[in-house]
Design a protein around this nucleic acid. Structure first.
Lengths: 226, 226
DNA sequence: CAGTGGTCTAGACCACTGA
DNA sequence: CAGTGGTCTAGACCACTGA
């Protein structure tokens, strides 16, 4: 077990729940009973069980007690991947090549947006086409940034803290333009990742990345410790 | 603000960090200083800041103090989606149709596995082809389960608690067999989701789902509160 | 070696909610 | 209305680590 007592208590119940020894709906001992069992203060028991409640493994109701939660439909959570690091991790040389850069002036409907087109490459071969819009007001300095050294995504990650993101993942057939950019036949399958990112409620960037299907995959892991 | 004091303290710093007022590397006040500022006990300050450290928004070092964390490469986390609920949520009728069921006896290299082939439909139209292997020993009862009422995935979610999962997301062109099952032309783009799920270190199920590209998308959200 | 965070105690009062 | 969990206090001792 881990060093601290609350870690041990938490791990005990985690193990008993995930092993099936404690089934959904089963009642856990009260905090009073656990104080006696582990010989500790109530705060320590509480500190052990709170993360399990936050993780949805148990449900706690005053007066009624603590129960093993019924499995729920998990909502999906996906973080922003770092393409350069992933390509480097598999021993390839990563590069971003800027293909187009347009500043759209502000108008009545929206504020000034920088439009960036480019391609991510691994060992010189196209990996993904990227089309991005960045809200200029939220990303001061982006108009003069040098994207030969750093992709727009990496620049934003380093300069603009984001607070919320939504990612949509789809598959699509390559259009003629995409096929040309990526060196594929028209209609070839692409893995498309579209992401919107906000900072304090204001849209920071919209990006659409189209990955060559057999050159890229998204891998995600989930465990009880998050 | 939320009701409790530790929620208020946590939200205060969350807001100041995400708004950029506190930049990466900035030092937060010590717990002593925060006790004085908020007029509360040290445990309350600690309870407020601990989740921010767990979420990676701040870093805490003894003697040195507490600092706003530098943006890090996020590892991807993806939960298991509930297809039936998602299809129902967009007002369509969900169904799973079993196409094949084979019990592979145990041999020297692996334990007994149940092999299940089927198709998920929305309003009668194919949504995804599914090929699944289930470790029979870890899922007692699955050999006699009725998959006309519940898909294998839903059955497993309800009967076998899982502790770890790995998901790989790719795009691919439909093979001839997939095209037939899904009513598509050969070569049509598919969104492929391959997932392995473990329970207490033992493999529970391997599943590969091939979604019709224009009928399905994965949507994932990320926010500071997880 | 002194400052800081990590853990834990032994209480207290309260909010909620099921019997 | 009594049992349970949620929050909070005012301390204590300790582990770590940078000056």
């Amino acid at each position: 077990m881990n060093g601290t007592l609350h870690d041990r208590i938490r791990t005990d119940f985690e193990t008993r729940i995930l092993s099936g020894e404690l089934a959904p709906g089963d009642r856990l001992p009260t905090e009073q009973a656990l104080m006696a069992h582990y010989g500790c203060a109530r705060m320590t028991v509480h500190k052990a069980l709170s993360p399990l409640a936050a993780a949805g493994l148990i449900e706690r109701r005053r007066k009624a007690g603590t129960f093993v939660a019924r499995p729920r439909a998990h909502s999906m959570v996906l973080d922003i991947p770092d393409l350069a690091a992933e390509v480097a991790a598999r021993g390839q040389a990563y590069a971003y090549r800027l293909l187009g850069r347009t500043l759209r002036a502000a108008d009545a409907s929206q504020s000034a947006m920088l439009e960036l087109d480019g391609v991510h490459t691994a060992d010189g071969r196209p990996l993904a086409a990227e089309h991005r819009l960045v809200a200029a007001a939220v990303a001061p300095g982006i108009e003069t940034a040098d994207f030969a050294r750093q992709s727009p995504g990496a620049w934003l990650l380093a300069h603009v803290p984001w607070s919320e993101a939504e990612t949509r993942i789809t598959a699509a057939a390559a259009t003629a333009a995409e096929a040309t950019t990526l060196g594929l036949a028209k209609g070839a399958p692409l893995l498309c990742v579209a992401r919107r990112t906000w900072r304090a409620g204001r849209l920071v960037t919209l990006v659409r990345q189209a990955f060559v299907a057999d050159a890229y995959e998204l891998v995600a892991r989930f465990g009880p410790r998050g």
